[in-house]
Design a protein around this nucleic acid. Sequence first.
DNA 1: TAATATCATTAGTGTAATACTAAAATATGG
DNA 2: CCATATTTTAGTATTACACTAATGATATTA
Lengths: 140, 140
Amino acid sequence: MEHKTNDVSRRERDCLVVLEEETKDNFPMRLHQIADSLGVKPPTALNVIKRLEHKGLARSRGGMVVLTESGDRAARSILLVHRTFESLLCQSGVPENSACVEAAEVDFIIQESDARLILKKIGNPKYCPHGKPISERDRE
Amino acid sequence: MEHKTNDVSRRERDCLVVLEEETKDNFPMRLHQIADSLGVKPPTALNVIKRLEHKGLARSRGGMVVLTESGDRAARSILLVHRTFESLLCQSGVPENSACVEAAEVDFIIQESDARLILKKIGNPKYCPHGKPISERDRE
DNA sequence: TAATATCATTAGTGTAATACTAAAATATGG
DNA sequence: CCATATTTTAGTATTACACTAATGATATTA
């Protein structure tokens, strides 16, 4: 019915990305830590996490939260779209900081398949303007 | 505080665009007509219109609705972004219909200034894939 | 003009995402 | 075992969206 397979809201996107970046060491995040990262109170963060769990994107036990396989894929997809769009904007002449902000407005909406095609069109840059690798193969 | 100057929701965008396209002859739209175009019931459409009025984008009297100057500008801006993004997607290899659907997901979010820069980067096409003029100067 | 049909509007619900406070339940560490 | 920290529940609020049902207003037309 809906647009994306992994249809996430803005805040859910924030949460996915934070989890993706903070659990690379295989340690889960604590609720309060997530709340701090999102800049909201713990009950609000808990709410977001419950929605993610409901969608099969995260799992939690006693305040310890991890991404599922599916959540990990969703997060990487979002990052790919983000960095692709960011690169497009920068190549077009949008200042780096502005590009990042703008990319964050759409990175959870634009389809990964579209982003991959755009990526090719703009010359398959390996890194986004911030220097982060774009493809999920060469992760930091 | 927010992202866009003319920050409109998805449904408000739909309403703006419908009004823009259906009031070219300077005749206002009726509520029920708007409701039909949006595929919602009149009370729902009325609600959307009230939000637009509140934002200074539309005016209505006795069920007759028109865009304000500001609303007209907002609608054109959205169309410019839509057609630009659509063109980008098509040039990248996304099928036309798909491109249109995807563009509709972001045309009310991406900034006009960004779109103008992207437009230049992709070679300043005069028309979108559907053949509609992109620049607001040469309107149909 | 009066009756009917059409259209607009109000009122009342309901869902989803977002966010808060306050309080209660659970850990955790001494 | 107690104090602190953390999680969780409960309750409230806002915005966008959408509905039904009822009411109000305005036509059209018989």
